[in-house]
Design a protein around this nucleic acid. Structure first.
Lengths: 214, 214
DNA sequence: AATATATTGTGAAACAAGTAACTTTATAAT
DNA sequence: ATTATAAAGTTACTTGTTTCACAATATATT
């Protein structure tokens, strides 16, 4: 029906905001409130909900409890979401210990690396050798991996993962890996985002073509 | 003129691909080649270039050297791009030592934290106390910061940064901070991307509304 | 109980982005 | 020199997304 990524991201954000509201003791919420909190228009909030049959009450707004529950089901948050980290350099290890994950029901079950120096099979979250990755993925039914290997190793690892039951990868290597219908790749290109910021800061107000020609 | 973020990200990608092509000894490139390499359509490549007056030769394609130079100017890559890292936990320290940055002309000039245990003013990239951040930003004319503080501290730090000459922030805290025209925030919400992957893997092929209602 | 009002839900309109197809022109071949 | 052709540059079309505006209706007020 709907393969729009942005809607789903917004649903996550509505959910997160409502969980905080709930923490504050709020019971119901209006499209207006959510719009302010998330930074979108009220009509978009209503449209998004309407697309997924998430209903409220005319004049009464949306019941937070109800909506969070429905969003949890919709987003698959009622199940534990297991991931592995491939590449245990600084960034990989930061992700392994990232305490934002447990809070939203994401569990890092293992790390993988090719450097014997960082391996540690006995750690709470074991760091294993990449040679064993296929077996581990199969045994533990891993569906999502975070890729934090050096750029030159990224494409090769994707080729390996494609032969496993992994179906989605979040890529931190500074190149844009191509997604497909049956194997999703979300690229987190930090360098690109920073370049983008600099571009917008320097040139956004003036005419960029002028800058180039002048 | 144009505030479409995606075009700019694509320009970065064209540039990165062309730099690699240049490394292979290639001299000219066609919209077709770039399209394949970046994963977009050839007409989009031509349109993107055309929007920024980046011209090639009919039948001769684009001269890589020429185009990379023009893209460097356009993207502001002819100047060193200085950033600071706010929050020197695991993720912040990983970014401080991230070797993808120097390769694309981004330089991390300092880290900031409130925990005395991690401070180190003498390190090659000093880690300073956040109380000194405003002064540092002013003296060093910092325009872009990476925010890797815990979620509860994020909004407060944004409020502080708004009073400085920082104009852009890349935010890693798991909440979506709101951008404005004069203060840009790009959110790198890792949790959200992972949730999104799980959603797409589990539900994309079936009808999500069914999943919810059933 | 009747009326007023606030808020949802939705179809139409407006907008933005990307694609496809056409026109132009530089290069290559004859 | 002439002709053919490949690729850029451009215009029009298509598609998808967001906003707008209003009808429907649940709650609150009198």
């Amino acid at each position: 029906m709907n393969s729009n990524q942005e809607v789903i991201r917004r649903l996550s954000r509505y959910r997160n905001v409502m969980r905080k509201m709930k923490g504050l003791g709020l019971v119901k919420v209006f499209s207006d409130n959510l719009a302010d909190a998330v930074g979108v228009s009220p009509s978009l909030v209503r449209k998004d909900f309407s697309m997924f049959n998430l209903t409220g009450n005319k004049r009464g707004g949306y019941r937070i409890d109800d909506l969070v529950t429905k969003l949890n089901t919709l987003l698959g948050k009622d199940k534990k979401q297991k991931i592995i980290i491939i590449g245990c350099g600084k960034l990989g290890q930061a992700l392994m210990n990232h305490n934002g994950f447990p809070r939203v029901g994401i569990r890092v079950v293992a790390g993988f690396d090719s450097d014997p120096a960082v391996l540690n099979a006995e750690a709470p979250i074991p760091i294993l050798h990449v040679k064993d990755i296929k077996e581990f993925i199969a045994e533990n039914e891993i569906r999502v991996a975070a890729l934090t290997v050096p750029e030159p190793a990224a494409q090769g690892m994707i080729d390996t993962l494609r032969k496993t039951c992994v179906k989605g990868v979040i890529n931190f290597a500074p190149l844009t890996l191509k997604s497909s219908d049956d194997f999703l790749i979300h690229n987190m290109n930090i360098e690109q985002e920073i370049e983008n910021l600099f571009y917008n800061i320097h040139f956004a107000e003036s005419n960029p073509v002028e800058n180039l020609v002048a």
